[in-house]
């Protein structure tokens, strides 16, 4: 701890922290791009099928000239390293390929749909982070109380329900039986505010509910662990007020580990949200992925994977930064390897 008071040392720690993190995320992004390149080429089967999708492939098989021109575009007859260079070049020009099922360039489709996915996932996720953390903190302190036990059990049930199924049931109940909300679809610019909101209300609540349950379970576990630590007994004996005690000695210490766990499992909740899109016919990344699978439009499928993976990596980087800002001990801990 002495080291933290030494400004020179702190500066050098900071720099090495950022360099390490930069290297980490750079390798991550590179791996995703590399996977994107390698998967269609390494899978058993004809890479042409995976690179162009079923329909184009079907047409091309009967037309050798088309095969020639397509192969030339992707450099398929060149060595694998050259192919990678061509692929990277295409990528940097924003050329993700062509989707036959939509009859449009993939980059266009993706650009249209990423915002919709973010609209659907971001607000409920942020909301559930806050409420879930609060709830978990509350449940983890004196967990023996009957009502807390009941709520915890309910959370476990919510956590094990697949969110897309929850979405289907919600549509059944609120749209079909009570006719309160539209059956599916996303809000579009021409809609009135009320209609727009009515489109969002169900997906938002489903995602928020699922995420909040899961966040609360994590936070409850962390609080339980921290409440066992000796410093909590000292803190209790200090005679702080209940609220102050909770914030200072339970919430703050659990925040950094909470963020790192939440970041790790972020991919899991995000994947859940993708499937919820399908249930609501919400034309975001998950819905696109589903259509690509149904249509066997492999280039589109590939591109949606890359984009979702990149979004998750970005969110992880943000969580890293946040925990860095919150807890200076992170810098030390990560330096000391353990």
């Amino acid at each position: 701890m002495e080291g933290l008071n030494d400004p020179a040392m702190r500066a050098s720690l900071n720099t090495s922290f950022f360099i390490r993190k930069f290297v980490r995320y750079f390798t991550l992004v590179f791996t995703i791009i590399f996977l994107n390149f390698a998967m269609p080429r390494l899978m058993p089967g004809d890479p042409l099928l995976f690179l162009f999708g079923e329909e184009v492939y079907g047409a091309a098989i009967r037309n050798p000239e088309l095969i020639q021109s397509l192969s030339a575009k992707y450099g398929l007859n060149k060595p694998i390293f050259d192919q990678f260079i061509i692929y990277l070049g295409n990528l940097f020009r924003g050329d993700l390929g062509y989707s036959f099922s939509y009859g449009r360039p993939i980059a266009e489709i993706i650009a249209e749909r990423v915002p919709l996915t973010l609209l659907m996932t971001l607000p409920p996720t942020l909301l559930s982070l806050v409420t879930g953390a609060m709830l978990g903190l509350h449940l983890g302190f004196n967990p023996e109380r009957a009502h807390k036990k009941a709520i915890s059990s309910l959370l476990m049930v919510l956590y094990s329900v697949p969110p897309y199924w929850m979405a289907i049931v919600a549509i059944l109940v609120f749209s079909l039986w009570f006719n309160l909300t539209p059956i599916g679809g996303a809000p579009s610019p021409g809609m009135s505010i009320i209609t727009g909101v009515s489109h969002m209300i169900l997906p938002f609540s489903v995602i928020a509910l699922f995420n909040a349950a899961y966040v609360a379970i994590i936070m409850r576990g962390l609080t339980l662990e921290i409440a066992e630590e000796p410093f909590i007994i000292t803190a209790k004996s200090k005679g702080l007020s209940y609220i102050k005690f909770k914030i200072r000695h339970l919430f703050i210490p659990s925040l950094a580990p909470f963020l790192s766990i939440a970041a790790i499992e972020l991919g899991f909740t995000f994947s859940g949200a993708l499937l919820v899109e399908i249930a609501f016919s919400w034309p975001g990344m998950g819905y696109t992925m589903w259509q690509a699978v149904v249509e066997r439009d492999y280039p589109l499928l590939q591109a949606t994977f890359t984009m979702t993976a990149l979004i998750v990596v970005l969110a992880n980087a943000l969580a890293d930064l946040a925990s860095y800002a919150i807890d200076p001990r992170i810098r030390l801990r990560e330096n000391g390897r353990n």
């Binding site: 995976f50 994947s271 993708l274 993976a309 992880n316």
Partner: peptide, 19 residues
């Protein structure tokens, strides 16, 4: 660390679709 961050379900979807 790499495979913990890359979201598993989308990757599984792509791989299963290929295989």
């Amino acid at each position: 660390d790499l495979f913990i961050v890359i979201p598993a379900l989308p990757l599984m979807i792509v791989l299963t679709a290929y295989l």
